[in-house]
Simulated scan of single mutants.
Amino acid sequence: MADIPEIEALTPYARSLGITLDSWEDGTPILSVPFDEIVEGRPDHYHGGATGGLLETAGYAVLRAELARQDRAAMLKPINITVQYLAAGKSRTSYAKGRITKLGRRSANITVEAWQDERSRPIATAVMNVLMAGPTG
């Protein structure tokens, strides 16, 4: 399995939120973020932006892992991301895992789920479309 170094996989924004690589599941990274005041919106709840940041980061992480497995180099550029907030994130660790639904030569479609206690009860989902430009831009 091609592991992606955590420092390369996560953006400075993601690291500032406390997002880390929690584990690998069937070659797919699962990311987590502990509840802390940096991600708090209203008292004892995640800020929607922090939840969205976790979803987006997990989407890019699964894409980077797959590109590394295929020995492909690409600059990733967002086309769009749509987030659906399903339940309030409470004051405990949140997790997210992405799944590539389509991987083409120049673009990828990804779905992502975030959950807390039970994976079967997501707190938010996202659909992402990402342009994969050549290494020089």
Results as ranks from 00 to 15, higher is better:
residue 21 L to G: 01
residue 104 G to Q: 11
residue 20 T to S: 11
residue 120 S to D: 13
residue 105 R to Y: 03
residue 63 L to R: 09
residue 60 Y to N: 09
residue 112 V to D: 14
residue 69 R to I: 02
residue 26 D to K: 13
residue 106 R to I: 01
residue 112 V to M: 13
residue 46 Y to A: 14
residue 114 A to Y: 02
residue 49 G to D: 08
residue 58 A to Q: 07
residue 98 G to F: 07
residue 66 E to R: 02
residue 110 I to E: 03
residue 31 L to H: 06
residue 81 I to M: 15
residue 40 E to D: 14
residue 13 Y to L: 11
residue 15 R to T: 07
residue 22 D to Y: 12
residue 81 I to E: 08
residue 34 P to M: 13
residue 97 K to D: 06
residue 26 D to F: 06
residue 20 T to P: 00
residue 86 L to F: 02
residue 79 I to A: 12
residue 110 I to H: 02
residue 41 G to C: 10
residue 46 Y to G: 12
residue 27 G to N: 08
residue 38 I to T: 15
residue 55 L to G: 13
residue 71 D to T: 12
residue 120 S to E: 14
residue 117 D to H: 01
residue 116 Q to V: 09
residue 104 G to K: 11
residue 118 E to F: 01
residue 75 M to P: 00
residue 120 S to I: 09
residue 114 A to R: 02
residue 25 E to R: 14
residue 56 E to G: 00
residue 82 T to S: 15
residue 91 S to E: 14
residue 92 R to N: 08
residue 102 K to T: 07
residue 35 F to E: 09
residue 107 S to D: 08
residue 101 T to R: 08
residue 77 K to I: 13
residue 53 G to F: 09
residue 94 S to G: 14
residue 9 A to W: 01
residue 96 A to D: 13
residue 57 T to I: 09
residue 54 L to Y: 03
residue 37 E to R: 14
residue 101 T to A: 07
residue 64 R to S: 14
residue 118 E to P: 00
residue 53 G to P: 04
residue 59 G to D: 07
residue 40 E to P: 05
residue 65 A to K: 07
residue 117 D to K: 03
residue 39 V to K: 05
residue 38 I to G: 11
residue 24 W to Y: 15
residue 43 P to H: 10
residue 81 I to A: 13
residue 102 K to E: 13
residue 52 G to R: 04
residue 60 Y to I: 02
residue 44 D to N: 11
residue 69 R to G: 03
residue 117 D to G: 03
residue 34 P to V: 13
residue 41 G to Q: 06
residue 110 I to S: 04
residue 79 I to Y: 02
residue 69 R to A: 12
residue 113 E to H: 10
residue 25 E to N: 09
residue 16 S to K: 09
residue 40 E to M: 15
residue 96 A to G: 09
residue 50 A to M: 04
residue 101 T to S: 13
residue 39 V to C: 12
residue 60 Y to P: 00
residue 95 Y to M: 03
residue 32 S to E: 10
residue 97 K to L: 11
residue 25 E to A: 06
residue 110 I to Y: 01
residue 75 M to R: 12
residue 113 E to P: 00
residue 103 L to W: 00
residue 70 Q to L: 15
residue 39 V to S: 08
residue 82 T to N: 15
residue 13 Y to S: 08
residue 47 H to F: 11
residue 68 A to S: 10
residue 93 T to Y: 07
residue 33 V to N: 12
